[in-house]
Design a protein around this nucleic acid. Structure first.
Length: 470
RNA sequence: GGCCCCAUGGUCAAGUGGUCAAGACACCAGCCUUUCAAGCUGGAGACCCGGGUUCAAUCCCCGGUGGGGUCACCA
């Protein structure tokens, strides 16, 4: 039997990274098993902004490089792939359970939030084959109170008492199916063989098992993935370290790196190599090797992986990331970004930065000052300009820079070294001072490159300003 | 609170009834260097607690503690 899995998000308008990882694991499993990856939209409830919300999902998957074999846009033989378009199926399934005496229509008011909705009078009304479900009637299961047991691929053997669920609702009185009901109907009709989802669904599983039993359907295998927690152990959210997939995109992370990182969170390869691009993940992925316990999101490790992927990228693509960060951070405008001279400058700085530039947003840290008209020198760095010798050397260097006819790295180096030497100084203190004067920072690329990129005019100007300022 | 689940360094994460308990990120030191990063070398750092079972438990069993999930006419 060929494997069929599905990713079934509800269109809420954003995609949580936890959901992204669920999609990833489904996808990896499907590709590894040479199976089918289905995208199904669970939109029984929210009808608003469905189109925009759908786009968030499809864009997210595409960005990560996860293609789906069946679902919106590609279609397939088991459609439609929107639950909102499958109401007839839910209806007939509900009808069928009622006539078989496994469920019943109910018009009672059930007090919200009562535990285990208790059976009501409606349960005992006889229905024959001619019974027709009407609107205004909710449908509830006849819970025969048993123990449901299943072997979860990652969580192991699990067992529940079904009494706690009561005669839970299958179809709401407005005619829409509840999550558990729609899920079972769809998963069965779509031939889903493995349900891989977040472990917040484990307690839904026994309810679904009850339904499979009622329908006399063979249930699929289940694999419940552990949660992703924020860096502090709290639930991953905006406040606790960026929850939305788009946040990571905007921070300038590469999808390849995020995918690699996410795969490593909750799963480990057999070998020691952790740099695993998508195709390598497909080869190595095993559901059986997924951990049971939740893991915390570690930004440092993501950044590290991102840096590794960055280093494989041509400068042009890294420069592009840099450009987006600059625009997003308001350092330059869209218009300026489109200017070929600016582009050139960004590329040159990107190149000079080399592997210091580890993810998009970090470009500010090391590269921002190249694009600002004024730079601030923090007070704690001003002691670089205290020594009279250094001041003289800087002054001299500025003068020589001004007169330099050819602005290239070796001339720049020569100016700096000779200015220092003429003052009886080693090059280092002068170099450090110039770095601070030009960038307001003590770290960055090779100083001679830095000077080169800052440019003749601005270099002279910034050195003079630094000397006057304190 | 009921039900279900989980527990190896700061984080991710291998692993075993007898091991010097892998590896990665982060951290610290040295080398390199004009700084930083990278690279190389070295270092510190873990089996939640208490009972059993056993010649021997990080590993098996029970209890505790801690953490998480879930308890809807949401998905």
């Amino acid at each position: 039997m060929t494997v069929r899995v599905r990713f079934a998000p509800s269109p809420t308008g954003y995609m949580h990274v936890g959901n992204a990882r669920t999609a990833l694991f489904n996808w990896l499993f499907a590709r590894k098993q040479d199976g089918t990856f289905i995208l199904r939209i669970e939109d029984t409830d929210q009808q608003r902004h469905i189109e925009a919300s759908l786009k968030v999902i499809t864009d997210g998957l595409q960005w990560l490089g996860l293609d789906w074999d069946e679902g919106p846009e590609v279609e397939g033989d088991y459609g439609p792939y929107f639950q909102s378009q499958r109401t007839e199926h839910y209806f007939t399934h509900a009808q069928c359970l009622i006539t078989e005496g496994k469920a019943y229509p109910c018009t009672c008011e059930i007090a919200p939030q009562t535990e285990a909705p208790a059976p009501c009078e409606c349960r005992n009304q006889p229905r024959d084959e001619s019974f027709a479900l009407e609107s205004g009637m909710a449908v509830r299961i006849i819970n025969d109170k048993r123990r449901e047991h299943f072997d979860d691929i990652v969580q192991g053997s699990l067992s529940f008492d079904t009494e706690q669920f009561g005669d839970f609702i299958l179809v709401k009185s407005d005619g829409t199916p509840t999550y558990n009901f729609a899920n079972v109907v769809d998963d069965h009709m779509m031939g889903v063989t493995h349900v891989i989802r977040g472990d917040d669904h484990v307690s839904n599983t026994p309810r679904q098992l009850m339904l499979y039993r009622a329908f006399e359907y063979e249930p699929p295998s289940f694999a419940h993935l552990p949660q992703i927690l924020g860096p502090d152990g709290a639930r991953l959210s905006k406040r606790h370290g960026a929850a939305a997939l788009t946040d990571y995109r905007e921070m300038g992370f590469l999808p390849e790196a995020l995918v690699n990182y996410l795969a490593l969170l909750g799963w480990a390869p057999e070998g020691e190599q952790e740099f695993l691009p998508l195709d390598e993940l497909v080869k190595q992925f095993e559901l059986e090797n997924v951990r049971k316990s939740a893991g915390r999101f570690d930004f440092d490790k993501l950044i590290h992986l991102n840096s590794m992927y960055m280093q494989q990228l041509p400068v042009s693509e890294r420069a592009d990331l840099a450009k987006r960060a600059l625009v997003r951070g308001g350092v330059i405008t869209e218009n300026e970004a489109a200017n070929p001279k600016t582009q050139e400058q960004i590329t040159a700085v990107t190149e000079a930065l080399g592997n210091r530039f580890r993810y998009g947003e970090q470009f500010f840290e090391f590269g921002g000052h190249f694009f600002k008209t004024h730079i601030e020198i923090p007070d704690e760095l001003k002691d670089h300009f205290e020594s009279e010798d250094v001041r003289s050397a800087l002054y001299e260097a500025a003068k020589r820079f001004e007169q330099l006819s050819k602005w290239n790295e070796s001339n720049i180096e020569q100016v700096i070294r000779s200015s220092a030497k003429d003052q009886g100084l080693k090059a280092a203190p002068v170099i450090h001072a110039i770095r601070v004067a030009l960038s307001g920072d003590t770290v960055g690329p090779s100083l001679f490159q830095l000077v080169l990129l800052v440019g003749q005019e601005r270099t002279v100007q910034r050195i003079k300003r630094a000397l006057n300022r304190d």
